[in-house]
Design a protein around this nucleic acid. Sequence first.
DNA 1: ACCCCAGCCGAACGTTCGGTCGGTTATAGT
DNA 2: ACTATAACCGACCGAACGTTCGGCTGGGGT
Lengths: 186, 186
Amino acid sequence: MESLLRVAVEVFNERGYDGTSMEDLAARLGITKSSIYHHVAGKSELLRLAVDRALDALFAVLAEPAATAGPAIDRLEHVVRRSVEVLAAELPFVTLLLRVRGNTAVERDALTRRREFDRIVSDLVARAEAAGDIRPDVDPALTSRLLFGLVNSLTEWFRPDGELAVADLADAVVTTAFDGLRRRPE
Amino acid sequence: MESLLRVAVEVFNERGYDGTSMEDLAARLGITKSSIYHHVAGKSELLRLAVDRALDALFAVLAEPAATAGPAIDRLEHVVRRSVEVLAAELPFVTLLLRVRGNTAVERDALTRRREFDRIVSDLVARAEAAGDIRPDVDPALTSRLLFGLVNSLTEWFRPDGELAVADLADAVVTTAFDGLRRRPE
DNA sequence: ACCCCAGCCGAACGTTCGGTCGGTTATAGT
DNA sequence: ACTATAACCGACCGAACGTTCGGCTGGGGT
C-alpha cells in the first residue's frame, strides 16, 4: 500500500496525472491493472492520498511553536525554512500537490487547502511589514506570492541526492529571499 | 487560426494538455471536432505552435542589445525585467510552456530549448558573481534557479487585469530578487 | 486437514480518445 | 452562370481509457 502510493506518485510526477494510465502504474509495479483495485478504490484515491500527505506536512509546520509565537518576521523565516525542509522530505508528494489544477473534485479540495495555507502565510507577511521588518514599498500579498513562488519552484529541479544538503538549501533560500542576491556594500 | 490557437492554449491551461480532448476544444470554439483538423494537423501541433511562441519571445529577450553588452549584473537585471514583461504579454503561452513535462516529442523539444535558455541565464549569473556584483556565498547555479523560479512562478497567479501594472510587477520582482524582502537599516 | 482470504490474474465492460472520410454550404473570382 | 475552395459537418474508426468481475493460488489460523 505504502509502496503502491510511492510508485504512483513517482509516475504521476513523470507523466502527469492525466497522462498516467492505470496500465502505466501496473507496469511499473510489476502487477496487473486489476490488482491495483485490490488496494485502492481507484485512480483518484491515489491522488487524494498523495496530496493530503503533502498538505498535512505543510500545515503541521504552521502549527509548530516557532510559527505561532514571537515576532512575525521570525515566524515567517521559520515557516520558510521548515517549508523547504518539508518540501525536500516529501518532495514527490509536494511536487504533485503543486501541479494540481482543479480538474476533479479531489483536485479542487486540494486547491482549497492550498489557498488556506497561502492565506496564513500572507497574513504573516502583512504582520511583519506592519512591524517594520519587511520593506514597505512592495505589497504584502505580492511579497508573499513571490516568496512562496521561489520556495515552491524548488520542486522543479531539486533532487535529494546528497550533493546539496537540505540545510544548505534552506539557508540559501532564506538568505536569497530575505537579503536578496545582490552583494551588499559593507 | 490565430483565435483557434488562443482558445486551445486557454483550455490547455485550464484542464491540462492531457486532460483536454479535441471535443473540449470544439465545444469551446463552437465548431465540431472534425472541423479543427481543417486548420491544424492535430492536437500536438497546437501544443507545438504554443510553446514555440513562448520560447521565441523569451529567446528574443536574450538577443536584445541590453542583454548582450555591458556589465553582467546589468544584463541580468535587464533579462529578468524583460522576462517578466514577456511573461505578462504572452502569459497563456509561457504558462503552458512551463507545465510541459516531456511526455511527447513536441514536449521534449520544448524542454531542450528551455534548458538552453536556463543555461544562458545561469552563465550570466556566474559572470555577475565573478565580477563581484552578486553575493559569493550562494552557488551561481543555485542562485539562477531560485531567481527564475521566482520569475516563472508568476504564471501561477498573475492575471493582467489592469489592477497590477506590468511595469510595477517587474519593479517588484527585480527589487525583491536583487535586494531581498527584508527592510534594510538606513 | 480444513478453510480463509489477501493478493493477484485474464478477460471483458462501456466510454472516451485522437483522428479520418465523404460530403455540404457559403463566398469570392472570373 | 460556373467554378474553386475555405470552412464546416455527421458518422465513423481502432485504440486506449478506468473500472468490474469471476476465478486462481499460496501461506497462516484453527
